[in-house]
C-alpha cells in the first residue's frame, strides 16, 4: 500500500498539522512516512501545502507531482492541484469560498463543508480534524485508535486536554462528508 496525498489551503487552516497527524497515525501502524511542506514565501500569509506519503515500503521521492488524493481547502489550491490527481484518484474539498467546483470526470470527488461545521461546533480550530475525519471515511487508511494515538504524539502535552474535542471533530467529519461523483 502506498498513498500519496497533497493537502492544500490557506496558511493557518491547519494544513501542515493535519499532514503531521496523518504521518504519526501511519507511524503507529508501522508504516513508512514522509511529510514535505511548502516553506517558501507562500506560507507567509498565502497558501500552504504539504505532501504526505504513507507506504509499506521504503519511500523513494518525497517530492512528487501526481497524487492518489488531493485535499483542497481553497480556490487557489483547487486551480493548482485538481489536475494533479491521478485518474481514478480522490479529491476531497471544502465548499467554503469555492467559486469553481471540480470538473474532472475521471476521479472520485467528495465534498465536506468543514468550515461551516466547525463554526457550528463552536471552534474554527477543529476545522482540519473534521476534514481529516471525512477523508478517513472515504479511505480507511488506519484504525481510528491509531489516529488518536497519532494526534497525541503530534500535539504538545500542554494541548492534550484538547484531544477529546479533536476526536469529536474527527467523528463529525465521518458523518458529514458527501459523495459528489465517483468513477469506481
Amino acid at each position: 500500500m502506498t498513498e500519496e496525498i497533497i493537502i492544500a489551503g490557506f496558511g493557518g487552516q491547519g494544513v501542515l498539522s493535519m499532514g503531521k497527524i496523518l504521518c504519526y497515525s501511519g507511524v503507529m501502524e508501522g508504516q513508512e512516512v514522509s511529510w514535505m511542506p511548502s516553506y517558501g514565501p507562500e506560507m507567509r500569509g498565502g497558501t500552504a501545502n504539504v505532501t504526505v506519503i504513507l507506504s509499506d515500503e521504503r519511500i523513494s521521492s518525497p517530492i512528487i507531482n501526481s497524487f492518489d488524493t488531493a485535499i483542497i481547502l481553497n480556490q487557489q489550491s483547487m486551480d493548482k492541484f485538481e489536475s494533479t490527481v491521478k485518474p481514478g484518484g480522490l479529491l476531497v474539498y471544502d465548499g467554503n469560498g469555492i467559486t469553481r467546483h471540480p470538473e474532472r470526470k475521471d476521479i472520485n470527488i467528495y465534498r465536506i463543508d468543514a468550515a461551516e461545521e466547525a463554526t457550528k461546533m463552536g471552534s474554527t480550530k477543529i476545522f482540519n480534524m473534521i476534514v481529516l475525519g471525512g477523508y478517513l471515511k472515504v479511505k480507511k487508511l488506519f484504525k481510528l485508535e491509531s489516529v488518536i494515538k497519532g494526534l497525541k504524539k503530534s500535539l504538545p502535552e500542554r494541548y492534550h486536554h484538547m484531544i477529546p474535542v479533536n476526536e469529536k471533530a474527527i467523528h463529525r467529519g465521518l458523518e458529514i462528508i458527501k459523495e459528489v461523483a465517483t468513477v469506481n
Binding site: K20, C23, V27, E32, V33, S34, W35, M36, P37, Y39, I59, P62, I63
Partner: peptide, 10 residues
C-alpha cells in the same frame, strides 16, 4: 539541502 532539512520522516 532545504528539502531534507524541512521534511519530516521517521
Amino acid at each position: 539541502d532545504g528539502a531534507i532539512g524541512q521534511m519530516m520522516e521517521k
